[in-house]
Lab assay of single mutants.
Amino acid sequence: QLNEKPLPEGWEMRFTVDGIPYFVDHNRRTTTYIDPRTGKSALDNGPQIAYVRD
């Protein structure tokens, strides 16, 4: 279940091809599976993935 609260300024939620949510921090140009609103991860110790700018 996804959090309904808005993401912090400069953050975006995207999904992997497998449908796993991850979070893009455009301020720091990093990505993470940890939801910045809750501190909880969509994966157990998930790796960071490459930042992609559209």
Results as ranks from 00 to 15, higher is better:
P8F: 01
D44Y: 06
I49N: 12
N27Q: 08
I20M: 10
Q1P: 02
N3P: 03
G39I: 10
P6Y: 06
N3Y: 10
D25T: 01
F23G: 00
T32F: 01
F23R: 00
P8D: 05
D44F: 10
Y22E: 03
W11N: 01
G10K: 08
P47I: 03
V52M: 15
E4Y: 07
N3I: 11
V17Q: 10
V24T: 08
T30I: 15
Y51V: 09
Q1T: 03
E9K: 13
V17R: 11
F23D: 01
Q48F: 08
T16H: 05
F15H: 08
G10Q: 07
I20Y: 06
G10V: 01
L7K: 01
W11I: 11
Y33C: 03
I34D: 08
P36I: 01
R37G: 03
I49T: 15
L7G: 02
T31M: 03
L2E: 08
M13P: 05
P36M: 01
N45H: 09
N27P: 10
K40G: 14
Y22S: 01
D35R: 03
I49K: 15
V24P: 00
G46C: 08
T32G: 03
R29A: 08
A42C: 11
Q48M: 04
Y51P: 15
K5S: 12
S41H: 11
D25A: 01
R53D: 15
G19N: 15
G19H: 11
G19M: 11
V17I: 10
R14D: 06
T31S: 07
T38L: 06
T38A: 13
F23P: 01
Y22A: 00
H26E: 09
W11R: 01
V17G: 06
D35L: 00
E9H: 10
N3H: 08
E12Q: 08
G10R: 04
H26F: 04
K40H: 12
D54A: 03
V17N: 14
V24D: 01
G39K: 07
G10M: 03
V17H: 14
W11P: 01
D44T: 15
E12S: 05
G39T: 11
K40I: 13
L7P: 02
V52R: 13
N3L: 05
N27A: 09
H26Y: 05
L7V: 05
I20C: 11
Y22V: 04
L2Q: 05
F15T: 09
D54C: 01
E4N: 07
Y22R: 01
Y22P: 00
E4R: 06
S41T: 14
R29H: 05
T30V: 15
D54F: 02
T30C: 13
T30H: 07
P6F: 13
T16D: 08
D18P: 07
Y51K: 15
F23Q: 00
F15W: 10
R14V: 04
L7R: 01
Y22F: 04
R28S: 15
H26I: 08
L43Q: 09
W11K: 04
G39M: 09
I49M: 11
Y51I: 13
R37S: 04
G46F: 04
I34G: 05
T31C: 08
G39A: 13
Y33K: 04
L7D: 01
Q48C: 07
P8H: 00
Q1Y: 15
R29I: 03
H26A: 06
Q48L: 04
N27C: 10
E9W: 06
V52G: 09
R14S: 08
E9P: 12
P47E: 06
R28F: 11
T38S: 12
M13W: 02
E9R: 11
D25M: 02
E9Q: 05
G46Q: 07
P36Q: 01
E4S: 11
I34T: 08
F23E: 01
P6M: 12
V52A: 14
V17E: 13
P21Q: 10
L43A: 14
P21H: 04
D18C: 12
E12V: 05
H26S: 08
W11L: 05
G46P: 07
N27L: 08
R37W: 03
Y51W: 12
F23V: 00
D18V: 05
S41M: 12
W11Y: 07
S41L: 06
I34L: 09
P47N: 13
N3R: 06
T38D: 07
N27E: 08
N45F: 07
R28K: 14
T16I: 02
E4K: 10
L7C: 05
I20R: 10
T16V: 02
A50T: 15
D54E: 12
P6W: 04
N3W: 03
E12D: 12
Y22K: 02
P21G: 08
W11A: 02
V52E: 15
D44S: 10
G39P: 09
Q1D: 12
K40D: 12
T30K: 07
E9N: 10
I34M: 12
Q1R: 04
P47D: 14
V52L: 09
T30N: 02
G46R: 11
P8I: 01
D25I: 02
V24L: 15
K5L: 08
S41N: 08
A42F: 11
D25P: 00
P8N: 05
P47M: 07
T32D: 02
K5N: 09
D25W: 01
Y22M: 05
P21I: 10
D18W: 02
D25V: 00
V52T: 15
P21E: 05
N27T: 07
Y51G: 14
V24E: 05
N45P: 14
P21T: 07
D18T: 10
V24R: 04
M13A: 12
F23C: 00
S41C: 08
D18L: 04
I20P: 04
I49H: 14
Q1W: 01
D54I: 00
D18K: 05
P21N: 06
F15I: 04
T16N: 08
P21Y: 06
I34R: 13
